[in-house]
Computed example of a mutant assay.
Amino acid sequence: MRKIVVIPARWGSSRLEGKPLRPLAGKPMIRHVYERCRAAAVDDVVVATDDVRILEAVENFGGRAVLTSPENRSGTDRVADAARILGLLPEDLLVNVQGDQPLIHPRCIDEVLAPFQKESDLAMTTLGFVIQDPREITDPKDVKVVMDARGNALYFSRATIPHVRDRETPCTYIKHLGVYAYTRRFLDIFRDLPTGTLEEIEKLEQLRVLEQGYTLRVVMTSHDSPEVDLPEDIARIEALMQDSSKGE
C-alpha cells in the first residue's frame, strides 16, 4: 500500500486565473504546497494539472507533475485521472491537497491517512477544524460540515450549519478543510458517479459521495489550512507565513 499526495492545480479560475503560479513570499504558490507535502510521511508527491505552464514550473523546481485531462469535473476527478496515469494499485492511498493551500501542515496529511491503518474497509476521509474566526461561520467561501456520533459526515454546506434556533444554545462550528484521502479503488468508483444535484447547487464535490450513499469520515485536526481564493488573500497568507517563520 503506497501513500501518494496528489495536488490538483488547474490554470483557469474565475476569481484568480493562474493561481498556482502566483508568487507568495518569493515562490510560486504551488511550490509552497508541494514542499510542505513532501515533509509528510508519504511515498511521493505529484502535481496533477491541466496546463503545461504549471507542469513546467513544477518540474523547474525539481517537483513531479502529470498532465491530466481538462475535462475533469472536480479536483477529486483530477486526482483519479492522475492515479490512472501513475498506474497505482487499487489498495494504494491517495491524499488530495488543494493547490491553493500554501500553509498546509504536513501533520494534516498524516492525520487524514491515519484511519486507514485501523479500518480496512474505509473508502474516504477528510479533515475538519473547529472554527476560530467568527467571520468564517457565515462566509460561504468557508465550507461547514456536520457529522454523526461516529464522525461520519452528514452534510457539507456553504451556509451556516447547524442553524442555532435559540441563541443561548451552545454550538461549535466545524470548517471543512479541502484535504481528502481515498483508496485508488474508491476513486475509480467516484469518477463514474453522476454529478449530484446537491453537488451542483453548492459546488462541492464531496456531496457526490454523500448523495450516492457512501461514507465519508471526518478527522478533526488542530491545524488550520487557509486557502487563497481571491487576490486580497495573498497579502493575508504572506503575513501568516511571516508569523509562522518567527515562531520556528
Score class of each variant (00 low, 15 high):
246 K>V: 10
234 I>H: 01
111 E>T: 04
144 K>T: 02
69 S>Y: 09
85 I>P: 10
155 Y>G: 02
20 P>C: 08
147 M>W: 04
141 K>D: 05
199 E>N: 10
22 R>L: 14
99 G>C: 06
153 A>E: 04
173 Y>A: 03
114 A>E: 14
220 M>F: 06
92 D>K: 09
13 S>M: 05
175 K>Y: 00
13 S>Y: 07
166 D>G: 11
230 L>S: 10
142 D>F: 13
62 G>L: 06
52 V>I: 06
43 D>W: 09
8 P>E: 04
227 E>T: 11
46 V>L: 07
74 S>C: 13
131 I>G: 07
220 M>N: 12
35 E>I: 09
18 G>R: 04
196 G>S: 10
177 L>I: 04
62 G>W: 08
168 E>Q: 14
185 R>T: 04
164 V>R: 15
138 T>I: 15
175 K>T: 00
28 P>F: 03
13 S>L: 01
60 N>S: 14
43 D>S: 08
109 I>D: 01
123 A>N: 12
188 D>F: 04
195 T>S: 05
3 K>N: 09
135 R>N: 09
236 R>W: 15
101 Q>L: 13
123 A>I: 05
82 A>P: 02
124 M>D: 01
216 L>V: 10
147 M>T: 15
95 V>E: 12
29 M>R: 02
187 L>E: 08
167 R>V: 12
157 S>T: 14
122 L>I: 08
114 A>R: 15
117 Q>A: 08
132 Q>T: 07
114 A>M: 11
19 K>Y: 03
228 V>H: 00
173 Y>I: 03
114 A>H: 11
169 T>L: 11
71 E>G: 06
246 K>F: 13
99 G>Q: 03
98 Q>E: 06
160 T>D: 03
17 E>N: 13
207 L>T: 00
241 M>A: 07
167 R>P: 09
159 A>M: 11
9 A>E: 02
117 Q>C: 03
212 Q>N: 14
180 Y>F: 14
247 G>E: 09
150 R>T: 04
53 R>C: 03
247 G>V: 06
112 V>F: 10
160 T>Y: 15
132 Q>R: 14
